[in-house]
Amino acid sequence: MPAGSSSKRERQYEHIKDSAKERGASEGRAEEMAARTVNKERARSGEAKSASRSSTKGKSPSQRGGERSRGSSSSGGSGPTRDQLYEEAKKKGIEGRSTMNKDQLAKALGH
C-alpha cells in the first residue's frame, strides 16, 4: 500500500488479498490484485494524486460485477453451449457429432 493510505484502504487491501488467497491465488498474485483494486478505488474517489483516465471513467469494479473477468468459450463466449449444439445436431441426425467440438458443431449446423 502507498504511504499515507487510509485505514479503510488498508483494510480493503487485506480483505481482497485474503480473499484471493482463499480462492487459490499465489501470494504475489493476491497482492497484485489487491493493490490494483485499491488503487483504482483511490483514483475514483479522488484520493490518488494522479490517475489514468481508465481508472476514473467507466464502471467501478463493484458495478461491473466481474464482466471482464469471466471466462469465454471457444466461440467467443456467447450463443448456445456445446451441449445445446450437440442436442440440435442429434435432432437433425448429423453424423460424427459425438467427436465434434463446439466450433465444429456450430459449423455443421450452419450457425
Rank of each mutant, 00 (worst) to 15 (best):
A43Y: 01
S75H: 03
A30N: 08
R11P: 01
L105H: 05
E22L: 12
M1K: 08
G65S: 11
K92D: 09
S52G: 15
R23P: 02
A20Y: 09
G96Y: 09
A20C: 12
S62W: 03
K57A: 14
S74F: 02
G65A: 13
R68L: 13
D103C: 03
M33N: 05
E14F: 10
G71W: 09
K21Q: 15
A35N: 09
R53Q: 10
L105V: 10
E87A: 12
R70K: 15
E95T: 14
G77W: 03
T81W: 03
S45I: 06
A43L: 05
S26E: 07
T56Y: 01
R97I: 06
N39K: 11
G93V: 08
Q84T: 05
P80H: 00
L109R: 12
E22T: 13
E87I: 00
D103Q: 15
I16R: 03
K40T: 01
S55Y: 04
K57G: 01
G76D: 10
M33K: 13
N39A: 14
R42V: 00
G24F: 07
R70C: 02
K91I: 10
S50H: 06
R70L: 13
M100Y: 14
A89Q: 07
Y13A: 02
R9Q: 05
G71I: 08
E14W: 10
E87F: 04
R42K: 06
V38Q: 03
K92S: 09
T81F: 00
Y86P: 01
G79K: 09
S54N: 10
G79E: 08
G110F: 12
G4F: 05
R44I: 00
I94V: 15
S19N: 14
E14L: 14
G93I: 04
A51I: 03
S55F: 00
Q104W: 06
R9L: 01
T81S: 15
K57E: 15
R29E: 15
E67F: 06
S6F: 06
L109M: 07
S7Y: 07
P61Q: 05
S78V: 10
E27C: 00
A106D: 07
K59R: 11
A48I: 00
A34W: 06
E32A: 13
E27L: 04
R97V: 02
S60L: 04
R44Y: 01
T81E: 13
I94H: 08
E22M: 06
K57T: 14
A89W: 04
T81K: 12
E27G: 03
T56K: 05
S60I: 05
A89R: 02
P2T: 13
S98D: 15
T56W: 00
G24N: 06
S73Y: 03
D83S: 14
S19M: 13
Y13S: 05
K40Q: 09
A34V: 03
T37F: 11
A51T: 01
N101K: 15
S54L: 07
S72V: 12
P2S: 11
G79D: 09
S60A: 13
G46M: 02
S5L: 08
R44Q: 08
L105D: 02
M33C: 04
I16E: 00
K57C: 11
H15C: 09
S62H: 06
G46T: 02
Y13W: 15
E31Y: 02
S50R: 12
R97W: 09
G4I: 06
K21M: 15
D83H: 12
K90A: 13
Q12T: 06
I94A: 11
K92W: 09
G110D: 11
K92A: 11
G93K: 11
K40G: 04
R11G: 07
E10K: 12
L105I: 07
